[in-house]
Nucleic acid binder design. Structure first.
Lengths: 193, 193, 193, 193
DNA sequence: AATGAATGAGGCTTCATTCAT
DNA sequence: TATGAATGAAGCCTCATTCAT
């Protein structure tokens, strides 16, 4: 197995543990045990517990973003893209319990301030994706000519909040309905007529 | 100074530290230092770090709840009461940075499951307050005859989420507007005609 | 209540606790609680936890010794005195569970080395009592002319060991029989013919 | 040096310290210092101070028991075996001051109640050894046909008591004579004719 | 005589991190 | 690459003791 593969394994294991127990309560040894190696060997792949955390989270976020980005390409007009971004993101989290739990644990993942955000790059990338859709919608005349920057940031925040909170009472029961109504609401507010 | 006063001082100091640094990173010594006493003396007032945390949070939540409860009494009809609960809660958090930060750090404060919620009593009390307002509104014919229990729980959740998230980008800039629009939305959904 | 009486109360409480939990596990506060006063007030009566322990034990040992000494005076010949010393000591411990437990916990109580024995005085006194009986028995021609000093010390050791160990399996069941047979044995070895 | 060896070193050091200063007064750091390592490294070998104590004692008891068990095999008839068990056990303690001191400090080591005895297994094993010798003696017609179970337990108790107490005044002076006479006594009571 | 409050020293334990192999 | 062993820093908690009132 290659080094990169092993790293992936470590990051997955770490993510799952961090998601369940939080940063402090998760020990490097826990991670090592889960991958089936020793504590010290973890330090061959990462320099720090901190780096272990950040790389684990980054990788998960990137995979999420890339998945969505790929699906966006399957349609062409902005309205459809917007719906896809929303619905697929929701579904993705639905299928990735660990990431979901993690986002609920660590708010700061979405801080979005370039200076202190450890995940600024990936978050920013995701926001750019959304911004592009909105800009396209305006260009196509499908969306109101809103202030793209601020609306994007606003939507991104509401969005994350919604995704996370939808799972707080995560018996799964009615969160689907909640999501659909929320989406409809926002969609209505965005589309002309 | 009385023992009760000293306790208040300790809880305030603790709250502030827990809010800023989280449970794990805040040491009992930090708290002691902040109040100007020794670590061991803290244990004269509480039995545990855990108890220190829980009592600090409980006290803060109680003060919040009591403040709102007192303000509710200043008006009589349900619509006004509803608005007061909403707006004053928002303002209260506005003025109490520590509590705000804490709520953002520890989601579980609002778990609301009797079994595992360490703050169930005070949370439940707050929810009862809201429920009473809604019930009164229905009796007065001001609100739609909704399912009181479920609507209350739903509103409470949305509410907390909103209060907390409104401050994620807590430069305070545009959160006021965001709040007002959110409140208007819910209010419209609740009031007849 | 006089100071002396209060001291007695403290010593009794302390003895009972030391007996049950040992020196280290018994806290000064435990003792205070049991007497119904505060920790700090204990220090008005004793200077130390150490002194609290030693005085408690001394007092108990003295009471034991005095009780036996008084009973010895009720008979005149050495054989009877010897039996009384043995049997009454046994019975005394039978009735004083705390002292019994304590002797089982702290071996060093019977160290009998003048230099380091904290209870040398009272132990020595008890041994002198036994020695006097033996000397009298020899003088009366009832006992073999043994080496009084060594035999006394030997008997004292065996004796204590016996008293303590008789209670290790203190279901009480057969320790009486064990005691009587042990006493008979030693008595036979001591008496002429 | 192998891990097992290091463990032995630790257990020896711990035993010696526990024997001299008792459980409470002996700190984990004391043990570490004595072996020449750091406090925390002790926790690489044991999980607890409690476990450190129990494993130290267990190992010592096992070595004792195994030594005797090995010597028993050197003779065949029950009478000789009985004498060997007695005398060699005595001598073993003679040569192992630490174990001796420890047994004097912690009575509960020989509690012999399956439920609460931390050393039940090794103690029980030792008793079985003795029981086997007695049973063999009866089969060979050398011993009285006593109630094997109860006599074994009785002898084991007396035995331990004797071994321990023989050393209370452990200047070693006359304890040899004391031991021999005690052994003779019991032996006479056991052997036919 | 009595108390509440405070303190300091010390002990147990965890864990991220390093190092030699 | 991988591991076992070791370390140091830090945190929680207990408790004998003191002091002011």
């Amino acid at each position: 197995m290659e080094k990169a593969d092993k790293k992936q394994k470590i990051f997955q294991a770490a993510l799952s543990l961090f998601a369940h127990y939080g940063y402090r309560k998760t020990t490097v040894e826990d991670v090592a045990d889960k991958v089936g190696m020793t504590k010290s060997n973890i330090y061959f792949y990462v320099k720090n517990k901190q780096e272990l955390y950040e790389k684990s989270v980054s990788h998960a976020l990137e995979k999420w973003r890339d998945t969505i980005a790929a699906e966006i390409e399957t349609v062409s007009n902005a309205k459809e893209k917007f719906v896809i971004v929303s619905r697929r993101s929701f579904e993705y989290l639905n299928d990735h319990e660990d990431l979901r739990a993690l986002l609920m644990k660590d708010h700061d993942i979405f801080t979005l301030s370039p200076s202190e955000d450890r995940f600024y790059e990936v978050n920013h990338g995701a926001m750019m994706m959304l911004k592009e859709v909105i800009r396209q919608g305006i260009d196509e005349g499908a969306f109101y000519p809103v202030d793209v920057d601020h609306v994007t940031e606003f939507l991104f925040s509401v969005y994350i909040m919604f995704l996370i909170k939808a799972y707080v009472k995560s018996d799964g029961s009615s969160s689907d309905r909640m999501f659909e109504e929320g989406l409809a609401l926002i969609f209505r507010g965005l589309c002309k007529i």
